[in-house]
């Protein structure tokens, strides 16, 4: 809207937008700043903004004393493991739906997607009971499989929307030239689908990385990822605000970086396609 905007007006609007952005970003900024403060400075009254002795001590303490490495590794394994596992199941399915469009494809897709909205609480007890039965509580495998199940609908759906954007004419041309199904998939489809697959991968790694309902409830220590690590800090055992901040920063920094590159996919995936 507002096709013609005077330069002065534009400056005012831009300033307003930046102020809003600053307010939104402030808690994140505050956490990052706090993570570099010595513990007493972090809770000092009045608070200190920038003029303190910056140090990485909190990071060092968190990594060395609180076993950050193990939590981080679990997060990596679970987030990437569940996403890749999901992709293996979802790619053929999305391919089939995108290129062999049947009358019920759209219904099936919506049905799959709607399951993503179901509360996890509705399936927690059965999954918990099965995990107990197979003695799989607090294992990476369990978390990987469960998070794969939870994100499968969204993986299929995202892949589907990307695959749909590939022009079918190209496939027909390839078939005319005598390409087999295998060749068609490997040489024609895959190169064109790589960007979509990459975006889907990225979004789902973020989703799985952030997931906390399942990680809080199905892990104790061995398979506990970073979300559990942060949650462990929130139990009231004295003051370690600065260390908690350092731990939080280490948990969300990968996401902030990934998020920068995948903001569009993030919105698209999270809104169930309402926004492309």
């Amino acid at each position: 809207m507002a096709r013609a905007v005077t330069p002065a007006r534009k400056t005012v609007n831009t300033a307003a937008a930046w102020i809003v952005a600053l307010i939104i970003f402030f808690p994140i900024l505050w956490t990052i700043l706090t993570s570099f403060k010595p513990e007493p400075v972090a809770v000092a009254s009045p608070p200190v903004f920038l003029n303190f002795d910056w140090s990485f001590d909190n990071y060092r303490t968190v990594i060395q004393q609180r076993g950050y490495g193990q939590f981080f590794w679990n997060s990596v394994v679970i987030a990437f493991g569940s996403t890749i596992l999901g992709m293996i199941i979802a790619i053929p399915a999305a391919w089939a739906m995108a290129f062999v469009h049947g009358p019920r494809t759209k219904d099936l897709l919506m049905w799959m997607l709607s399951t993503k909205m179901m509360p996890a609480a509705g399936v927690l007890v059965p999954i918990y009971l099965i995990a107990v039965y197979f003695k799989m509580l607090d294992t990476q495998i369990l978390l990987t499989v469960v998070l794969m199940l939870m994100n499968l609908p969204i993986i299929i759906w995202m892949l589907y929307t990307y695959f749909r954007e590939i022009p079918v004419d190209i496939l027909e041309a390839a078939r005319m030239d005598g390409a087999t199904l295998f060749n068609e998939i490997v040489y024609v489809l895959t190169p064109m689908a790589v960007p979509g697959i990459a975006s889907t991968l990225l979004l789902n790694v973020i989703l799985a990385w952030n997931e906390s309902f399942w990680t809080l409830n199905l892990t104790a220590f061995n398979a506990a990822p970073l979300t559990k690590f942060i949650a462990g800090f929130s139990s009231p055992q004295g003051l370690f605000y600065a260390k908690l901040s350092a731990a939080s920063v280490m948990a969300f920094l990968p996401i902030l970086i990934l998020g920068w590159f995948s903001q569009k996919q993030l919105v698209r995936g999270l809104t169930f396609g309402a926004v492309k």
Partner: peptide, 25 residues
């Protein structure tokens, strides 16, 4: 944001960042 803001591309991710964080964080 729809008012032809300067550097909109830079601003949008900042608005979106909170959503990219885990509810735990």
């Amino acid at each position: 944001l729809d008012q032809k803001i300067r550097a909109e591309g830079l601003l949008r991710p900042i608005y979106l960042y909170p959503m990219a964080l885990s509810f735990i964080v």
